[in-house]
Design a protein around this nucleic acid. Structure first.
Lengths: 151, 151
DNA sequence: TATTGTTATACTCTATAACTATA
DNA sequence: TATAGTTATAGAGTATAACAATA
């Protein structure tokens, strides 16, 4: 590191990568925000406010994404018996199936992409994503301390 | 590499990263698609069809993004004297300024994020993005061979 | 009073189909 | 005929503000 500011190439790569993901996911029949939401649900979160915080989107946005997923039979809305203001979203078997298909599509796209560079460098790219994963999780925990109980 | 399929964590990280970029760019007053388009223009492309191919979006989508940027004074539309069907988009000084601000915002967000992990691992993450950059560019050249003359 | 989720509304991005102007 | 770009239209994701129900 030690860099004061990252090169534009590196910055823009993070932006370009997202479009590649959209493409891969379209083949799996799902959008990027839907993929993010299903991923989060598969980790155990379900209450709307928690999902919104973790995804860093507004609550109406979560309502909309869940509407779409419910409409496609990938998610079900349930009442929370402990607090009747709350909603709980749970994945249907179809939802779990499509999430696995989406993971495979993204994996395929990344591997295809990295197939064009030296294998050692490709390994660096994958390890780099793993690092970013850890950084995002550390950050999420920090930001959300105190609300985790709702997950 | 050698992996048959990448772990869900790695796949989903690529999806989550995009949302982080949206956030950083919002602080700079720009959207992710606008950032992608301005980035591409700063590399020399300007004809609409070429921008659409490189961004991998439809031509009407490019029209829309440029409409927004023109409306904000960040881009100007010009006629191509050589072929009057064609449009050429050029960045205004404000456009260049906001692109630099956007790069800085993204850089700041990435560095802040990676500040939470071991410096050596952070360096791996940045190097990984550089690898992905190269892979994307190699792919872009392959896909667009023959149309490059229009850039 | 505060919180959860939804509704109302508006804007951006996205696509496909149809159109105009030019080649 | 073919290509460049736009318009028309529709759908998804995004936000803020306002609301109802519950705590």
């Amino acid at each position: 590191m030690a860099a004061e500011q990252l090169s534009p190439e590196v910055c823009r790569t993070a932006a370009r990568l997202g479009r590649q993901m959209e493409f891969a996911l379209a083949n799996a029949g799902i959008t990027l925000p839907q993929y993010r939401l299903l991923s989060l649900m598969s980790e155990g979160s379900s209450a709307g406010a928690v999902l919104a915080d973790k995804l860093r989107v507004s609550r109406p946005t979560v309502t909309g994404i869940i509407d779409g997923l419910v409409g496609r039979g990938l998610v079900m809305r349930e009442d929370d018996p402990d607090d009747r203001r709350r909603m709980r979203a749970t994945m249907t078997p179809e939802g779990e199936k499509i999430l696995r298909r989406a993971d495979a599509a993204v994996s395929g796209r990344l591997l295809e992409l990295l197939g064009k560079v030296d294998p050692e460098r490709a390994a660096t790219a994958i390890e780099g994503l793993r690092v970013i994963h850890d950084a995002l999780d550390i950050r999420r925990e920090g930001k959300l301390q105190g609300t985790d109980a709702l997950a």
